[in-house]
Computed example of a mutant assay.
Amino acid sequence: MKDLELLLKNIKNKELLPIYFFHGEEPYFMDVAVKCLENEVLEEDEKAFGQTIVYGKDTTMAEVIASAQQFPMFGNINLIIVKEAQDLKWNEEDVKVLEHYIENPVPTTVLVFAHKHKKLDSRKKVSKILDKKRFLFHSEPVKDWSLAQWISGECKSKNIKTDPEIPVLLAEYLGNDLSRIANELQKLKIILKDGEVLNHQLVETHIGISKDFNVFELQKALGQRNAAKAMHIAHYIGKNPKSNPFVMMIGNLYNYFSNLIIYHTMPGQNSSVIAGAMGVNPYFIKDYAEAARNYPLKRATRVISILREIDLKSKGLGANQTEDSELLKELVYKILNVDQVKVKA
């Protein structure tokens, strides 16, 4: 969500809007904003009479607007929060009622909608009015390529110092579940001592991600063309499919070799520029430089073809169904011997 920090700052400073309509595919940012409104708009002793929380499936738009039009019984503000607003049923009359209220909100009411998992239709009049009034806030998912960067920012905001590899490792293993990532980081913040740096050992101990047998180490071993280490890691990962889903392995290796191709297309550029194009921390450029020597552009392109071939096999296309553990070992072997294996066009 754009300008989330500014939005939270304004709420805490009591610079409030009459309407907040949060919508979009990513629920985490909405949860953060709504929680801030719950905590900051009213004092604890005002909440009993001034705060109303309802759920979309249990109410109607007409009831919500009727509540919003009431003046506070005590205090100066009525806070009305509609959670799971995507479950509200809107008929044409409801839409007109909402549009009218948006144009003429009650100044003593703060009306909040959390419309999760999907966007409002931007073509609709109600969306255009909300947007024009700057009451509409779109909560977009963090793109996979920028997830590690987002985690790094969250660590900084929580004053968690990390080794450079840690945001990448967490992104690869926790995926795009921002709520889970935030919870894990909060847990780590409580555990870490003052000045302690979050490293692989702490991540392995408290989150369960192995510091030696993970896709990050597999990438590094493949980049170095260290056959013994890469096959050893593949064997271990294959024995722990729940902790290492094959689809995640394929996705991360595809991103890695795609980044390697980007590296080849930017000769002479400085590390920061290349890292920016890849969406990675500049710390890792030295690893890509080594991998680039082992995988020239033509070889890296062939690896992408191998990854696509194995991905199709994993989906049962063009071959008998093979266990993921065996497919991973086949994949690693073919990458290491990319010049000798046949690659399907």
Rank of each mutant, 00 (worst) to 15 (best):
residue 3 D to C: 13
residue 8 L to A: 14
residue 8 L to C: 15
residue 10 N to V: 12
residue 25 E to Y: 11
residue 28 Y to K: 11
residue 32 V to E: 13
residue 34 V to L: 09
residue 36 C to G: 10
residue 37 L to A: 13
residue 43 E to H: 03
residue 47 K to L: 00
residue 50 G to Y: 00
residue 51 Q to F: 00
residue 51 Q to N: 06
residue 53 I to C: 12
residue 55 Y to R: 06
residue 55 Y to W: 07
residue 61 M to T: 10
residue 61 M to K: 05
residue 66 A to G: 03
residue 66 A to Q: 02
residue 70 Q to E: 02
residue 71 F to I: 00
residue 74 F to V: 01
residue 76 N to P: 06
residue 76 N to S: 14
residue 78 N to E: 00
residue 80 I to T: 00
residue 84 E to S: 06
residue 94 D to F: 01
residue 95 V to K: 08
residue 96 K to S: 07
residue 102 I to K: 02
residue 102 I to V: 10
residue 103 E to Y: 07
residue 103 E to H: 11
residue 106 V to K: 01
residue 107 P to M: 01
residue 108 T to W: 00
residue 113 F to V: 08
residue 114 A to W: 09
residue 115 H to P: 07
residue 115 H to S: 08
residue 115 H to L: 06
residue 116 K to V: 10
residue 126 V to E: 06
residue 129 I to S: 09
residue 130 L to G: 07
residue 133 K to A: 15
residue 133 K to I: 13
residue 136 L to P: 04
residue 137 F to E: 11
residue 142 V to P: 13
residue 143 K to H: 13
residue 145 W to K: 15
residue 146 S to T: 14
residue 146 S to G: 12
residue 149 Q to T: 15
residue 150 W to V: 10
residue 150 W to D: 12
residue 152 S to T: 14
residue 155 C to S: 10
residue 156 K to N: 12
residue 161 K to L: 15
residue 161 K to C: 12
residue 163 D to N: 14
residue 165 E to R: 10
residue 165 E to S: 14
residue 169 L to C: 09
residue 170 L to F: 07
residue 179 S to P: 07
residue 182 A to N: 10
residue 183 N to D: 08
residue 186 Q to T: 14
residue 187 K to A: 03
residue 190 I to P: 05
residue 195 G to D: 04
residue 197 V to P: 06
residue 199 N to K: 05
residue 200 H to F: 12
residue 206 H to D: 02
residue 208 G to F: 01
residue 209 I to T: 03
residue 211 K to Y: 07
residue 220 K to V: 13
residue 220 K to G: 12
residue 220 K to A: 15
residue 221 A to K: 05
residue 230 A to C: 06
residue 235 H to R: 11
residue 236 Y to W: 11
residue 239 K to M: 11
residue 242 K to L: 11
residue 243 S to W: 06
residue 245 P to E: 07
residue 247 V to M: 15
residue 250 I to N: 13
residue 254 Y to D: 15
residue 255 N to T: 15
residue 256 Y to I: 14
residue 260 L to E: 13
residue 263 Y to A: 13
residue 267 P to D: 08
residue 271 S to D: 14
residue 274 I to A: 04
residue 275 A to V: 03
residue 277 A to V: 08
residue 278 M to S: 06
residue 279 G to R: 01
residue 281 N to V: 03
residue 281 N to F: 04
residue 283 Y to G: 05
residue 284 F to I: 03
residue 287 D to H: 10
residue 289 A to H: 05
residue 300 A to S: 05
residue 323 E to D: 11
residue 324 D to H: 08
residue 325 S to E: 04
residue 328 L to C: 03
residue 331 L to A: 01
residue 334 K to L: 02
residue 334 K to I: 02
residue 334 K to N: 09
residue 337 N to K: 02
residue 338 V to Q: 02
residue 339 D to I: 06
residue 345 A to M: 12
